[in-house]
Simulated scan of single mutants.
Amino acid sequence: MKAFISEILGYDPKQEDLEGGILGVVKAYYGCVEAQGRGTVHCHMLVWLEGGLNPNQIKEKALANGGDLKFQEKLLAFLDDTISTSIPSDPDPDFELELGKIHPCATRGPTESDNTRNVSAAREKDLHNLVKKCQFHTHHPTCYKYWRGKPEPKECRFDLDESNTAPISVFDPETGELTLRCLDGLVNNFNESTIEAIRCNMDIKFIGSGPAAKAIHYYITDYITKTQLQAHVAYAALELAVGRLGEYDANIDEYTVRARRLLQKCAHSMIAKQELSAQQVVSYLMDYEDHFTSHKFSSLYWTGFEKFINDEDRSPECYRSRVEIPQELPEVSSPEDVNAEHDVNSDLDHPVDIATAVHSLETTEEEEEEGGVDEITLILTTQADLRHQQAK
């Protein structure tokens, strides 16, 4: 990853290199490492480019004075050159690479013998094989695991389908929304130079809208902040559970045996569901990074920070005075009179009256010394209930 950042992205910590890498001059980056279900370790990375505009600025510039056509053409040309969406053509079906029968991800590209025969054809053939093996999507049952059945349309959850194509990239002249071209709906986005270098499946997206930016930020922050059961704790718990449940006792009944088996299955499932693979273990033992960043960040302890601000300057919107209902009631002679009046009111369309008059009680100096009254209390009751209370 360090080689990818320095050589492919061309990031210069001193910001003195004006040429940059394959995407341009990189201003900043942040990436986190995770492992998928099969254990493969991979990285999700955000890259900020020098001179890059945020989604609102792009929209405003694209629509300025009826649309800045020169800006639109330059941006679309850059994106079309950077993001590829189809399998490159095969330069020569009869031209075979020396290691052509081996999966392209397991090789380092064309050999010296291939380049001696035809450098250009060898590179194009290698790129064709890479994209075909790594980027072309084939539907599997997991694509439809969220499908609830008919009449709901059966759609791939990865949004990859033959019909999802767009011949050219365009700006909507009314909304300023950008739609990138897609020449093959079953090919995941890729960058030619990047996939040749890393030799594995990849994805690349242009964050050109607010929702897309929020989605990617949510995904990364959600992953790096989620907690996992520590490996040594999990295996210690499993060892203890298996030891206890495996002890033989001739006096136990069948129900106890079945209960032990259930707990044993739960213990095994607890370990099986943890996102901990051999690659993750090796990465930890080799002291490899679990994230990559161009900048240093300071920890913000939010609870303590919020308490400090609250102690220094309380927000009047959060701390208001208590509100109560005045309990000025007419006198009644006896509980029997109250019951009689309550019975009469029960036959009316509106048998009870809800007290609606409220008044604010200012916090006294004594209450402030004791910490103040930080709540709103509304007491709504019926006249009959209040008269019952007074009669008692």
Score class of each variant (00 low, 15 high):
Asp114Lys: 03
Pro88Phe: 07
Pro141Thr: 05
Ser169Val: 07
Arg258Ile: 14
Phe305Tyr: 09
Ser269Tyr: 13
Asp347Asn: 09
Thr179Leu: 01
Glu196Pro: 05
Tyr29Thr: 08
Arg244Asn: 03
Tyr144Phe: 08
Ser269Thr: 14
Ile198Glu: 02
Lys145Asn: 13
Glu152Asn: 12
Asp68Gly: 01
Ile102Tyr: 04
His137Thr: 09
Ile220Trp: 14
Lys132Gly: 07
His232Met: 11
Lys70Met: 15
Asp347Arg: 06
Asp159Glu: 05
Arg322Ala: 10
Glu73Pro: 03
Ile8Ser: 10
Ser294Cys: 01
Leu76Asn: 07
Leu46Pro: 10
Asp184Ser: 09
Tyr248Gln: 04
Asn129His: 10
Asp68Leu: 00
Gly37Phe: 14
Thr82Phe: 10
Ser86Glu: 15
Glu336Lys: 11
Ser298Gly: 05
Leu276Trp: 12
Leu276Gly: 12
Arg38Tyr: 07
Leu183Ile: 07
Gln57Ala: 08
Thr363Lys: 04
Ser6Thr: 05
Tyr301Gln: 10
His295Cys: 04
Arg199Thr: 08
Lys150Arg: 12
Leu378Trp: 07
Gln230Ser: 11
His44Ala: 08
Asn201Tyr: 15
Pro330Tyr: 06
Lys61Arg: 04
Ala197Gln: 00
Asp349Ser: 15
His359Phe: 15
Asp337Phe: 13
Glu306Asp: 13
Leu285Cys: 04
Ser269Met: 14
Ile204Arg: 02
Cys32Val: 11
Phe158Ser: 11
Thr363Ile: 05
Asn191Leu: 02
Leu99Ser: 08
Trp48Thr: 05
His128Asn: 02
His217Lys: 13
Val358Ala: 11
Gln36Leu: 03
Ile22Met: 06
Ile379His: 06
Gly31Pro: 02
Ile271Leu: 12
Thr175Phe: 03
His128Val: 04
Pro173Glu: 04
Tyr146His: 14
Ala35Asn: 02
Thr377Phe: 08
Glu317Ser: 07
Ile207Leu: 00
Gln264Glu: 10
Gly371Lys: 11
Asp68Phe: 03
Tyr255Ser: 14
Asn54Pro: 06
Ala272Tyr: 11
Leu53Asp: 09
Pro104Phe: 05
Asp126Val: 03
Thr116Ala: 15
Tyr11Ser: 00
Arg181Trp: 09
Ala212Ser: 05
Lys61Leu: 01
Glu177Ile: 06
Gln280Trp: 01
His44Gln: 05
Leu348Thr: 12
Lys74His: 04
Val344Ala: 13
Lys14Arg: 13
Glu73Lys: 09
Asn54Thr: 10
Gly109Thr: 04
His140Gln: 14
Leu76Phe: 12
Tyr30Pro: 00
Leu245Ile: 02
Cys182Gly: 00
Asp337Asn: 12
Asn201Arg: 10
Thr382Pro: 00
Trp147Thr: 08
Leu75Ile: 08
Ser193Leu: 05
Trp48Tyr: 02
Gln57Leu: 04
Gly304Pro: 10
Gly109Ala: 03
Gly149Arg: 01
Lys273Pro: 13
Asp343Thr: 07
Gln230Val: 12
Ile8Asp: 12
Lys59Ala: 00
Leu245His: 00
Leu18Trp: 05
Asn115Val: 03
Pro91Gln: 02
Asp94His: 09
Lys14Pro: 15
Pro211Ser: 06
Gln327Trp: 10
Gln72Lys: 04
Glu365Met: 15
Gly208Ser: 09
Ile325Ser: 13
His350Pro: 15
Gly51Thr: 11
Gly67Glu: 11
Glu275Ser: 06
Glu112Arg: 12
Gln230His: 03
Glu50His: 05
Asn65Pro: 15
Gly243Ala: 08
Thr382Val: 01
Ala357Met: 12
Ala122Val: 01
Thr142Phe: 14
Tyr218Pro: 05
